[in-house]
C-alpha cells in the first residue's frame, strides 16, 4: 500500500537501470529510452552512436536502428538500440490519456 500512496512511481524509478558511463553496470535486461546525440560510426554492422540517458552519455551499438537521426529517441537494451521511439504514436497515446483524465501532464 505504501508504495502506491507515496507515489513511488514518480521519483528515482529507474535509478538502477541508468547505464553508467564507465560500463561497470553490466546488467542486460532493462530497456531504457535515450536520445541520439551523435553518431560515432555508421559502418553497417559496426555502427555506434552516443546516447544520452537523463544526462548520462553512453556509446551504444546501433546495428538494428541504423536509420536513426540525431535527436531521435531510441530504446537501449544490453548496450544496443532495439528500436526508434515513434513520437507520433507516443503523442497520440498521451493525448488520449490527458483527455480521459483531464490532466495537464508534462511536456
Amino acid at each position: 500500500m505504501a508504495a502506491w500512496q507515496q507515489g513511488n512511481w514518480q521519483s528515482g524509478l529507474h535509478e538502477h537501470c541508468k547505464p553508467t558511463g564507465a560500463g561497470e553496470k553490466t546488467t542486460m535486461c532493462l530497456g531504457v529510452p535515450g536520445k541520439v546525440v551523435g553518431w560515432i560510426d555508421r559502418t553497417p554492422l559496426f555502427s555506434k552512436a552516443e546516447i544520452e540517458f537523463e544526462g548520462v552519455r553512453k556509446v551504444c551499438h546501433m546495428a538494428c536502428v541504423e536509420d536513426a537521426e540525431i535527436g531521435d529517441y531510441v530504446i537501449v537494451h544490453a548496450g544496443m538500440a532495439i528500436c526508434r521511439i515513434d513520437t507520433q504514436a507516443a503523442l497520440l497515446q498521451l493525448d488520449t490519456l490527458q483527455r480521459l483524465f483531464n490532466s495537464t501532464g508534462e511536456t
Binding site: E54, Y73, T104, G105, T107
Partner: peptide, 20 residues
C-alpha cells in the same frame, strides 16, 4: 518529451486505477 516522466503522471495513474 523524455519518454519516461510522461508515463509516470500521477493523475493518469490514479485515473487508470479508478477506472479498473
Amino acid at each position: 518529451m523524455k519518454y519516461l516522466s510522461e508515463y509516470r503522471d500521477p493523475k493518469h495513474a490514479h485515473g487508470l486505477v479508478d477506472r479498473i
